[in-house]
Write a protein that binds this DNA or RNA. Structure first.
Lengths: 226, 226
DNA sequence: TGCCTTTCACAAACCTGTTATGGAAGGCCG
DNA sequence: CGGCCTTCCATAACAGGTTTGTGAAAGGCA
């Protein structure tokens, strides 16, 4: 979290409240400073005063949006100007929210939470991860260590189920129930074959085997050797 | 865009402004009505009055967040209550923004644009882009790598929907609902044919195929090989 | 008529469940 | 401790089935 504010008293107040909520707080005192810090390390969110030395908050916001790396970084504008035309301009220049001074710390925190809640699910709600393995449910894609992996429908469902319960061992019967459905009647060995195909696909890139075979019990997603 | 508001005058005002900005507007007059309409077809955004018959806006908002399908639907609360504790509660129950009556239409529109820009960059612009593909909604034109592309009405709507949710996989049923409307009764294979024509048109210039087929799942706009 | 949409039929691509075989792991007994 | 045996698992190949691509034909609508 980066706070860009040139008034020391307000900066202190903000830092106090933010740290109290568990955020790591970085500070910048003018617009150029802020852009440099963002360049160096992209924060989770930027609190941006409207009136700043060197570069106005609005200009900083525009430059953030123009930058591809940090382009969708959440920005909350902080300002003494409460007039409507300013508010419209603030939002239209790309800020995600706009808080008018004087504000109550509680309201600001609520707005920060709201903005973050909006951002996080968009990035992670439909994604399952395990180690370097990533499954994007919405895009129906699996990748590992930046390499895309192609899976057939059954292997996809199988991996999804394993990812939803990492490290847990499932018997072949449990996997048949969970992945194929409760009404199918298949050889339990069939599971072996699909596990093999899944392993083959997952390890194509050369990583360690992520599926552990538990003799006489079943399989689990778990990279550890024994 | 769904407007949930029990005061007819305000509803009319909102509809006028929203349609003027190019949104399709649906209406609901109480909370239960709203939830039903959302169930049936998920809108791009919900404008939600705080005080409603049958179910309060806050309760509606909570239920929306609880629903997995519509869980990250953008919600803007609309309310006469300007007190801080209410604002905090409103935001914390999951609303993405909170506008106090009386509000100016301009500010509301700016906030809507801000929220949409965050969640669905696609919907706030008049131009949809994906890679070298460009769709101009206003001019109803599509082009790729500087070559104009002619599409029939259905292919246009199909591509528009895919562009609004890039990389996401849609089943044939979902596409029929979203592109043809919720009440049509067509063969799911009809989608294949339109996808094929869309592909043909898009690839005429020789570019890579932008539509990914996901076996047993559907189609997605996504250029990577898989 | 001309364009667009929908359906159909067939072919191609791909996926799936099964089986056969060989190898590994663990237990039992001398 | 070592050898043998049993049980379990990994692998490969295959035949059949399902899903998708494709071309064409029939029907609608302006």
């Amino acid at each position: 979290m980066l706070v860009v504010e040139d008034e020391p008293a307000l900066l202190t107040l903000l830092r106090y409240n933010l740290e109290h909520e568990g955020f790591e707080v970085g500070e910048a005192v003018d617009g150029e400073d802020a852009l440099l810090m963002i360049e160096e390390r992209i924060p989770d969110l930027v609190l941006l005063d409207w009136m700043l030395p060197t570069l106005s908050g609005m200009e900083v916001c525009r430059q953030i949006r123009r930058n591809t790396e940090a382009g969708n970084l959440p920005v909350i504008m902080l300002t003494a100007r409460g007039e409507e035309s300013d508010r419209v301009r603030g939002l239209d220049c790309g800020a995600d929210d706009y808080v008018v001074k004087p504000f109550s710390p509680n309201e600001l925190m609520a707005r920060i939470r709201a903005v973050l809640r909006r951002l996080r699910p968009a990035l992670s709600a439909n994604v399952l991860e395990f180690g370097d393995l990533v499954m994007d449910l919405a895009a129906h894609r699996v990748s590992r260590a930046d390499g895309a992996i192609h899976l057939g429908p059954t292997e996809f469902r199988l991996l999804k189920h394993l990812l939803e319960h990492p490290r847990r061992v499932f018997s072949r019967e449990q996997l048949l129930d969970a992945v194929w459905g409760p009404d199918v009647f298949l050889e339990t060995r069939t599971v072996d074959v699909h596990v093999r195909r899944l392993r083959q696909a997952l390890n194509k890139g050369g990583g360690a085997d992520l599926i552990r075979t538990v003799r006489a019990a079943g399989y689990a997603l778990d990279p550890e050797k024994s």
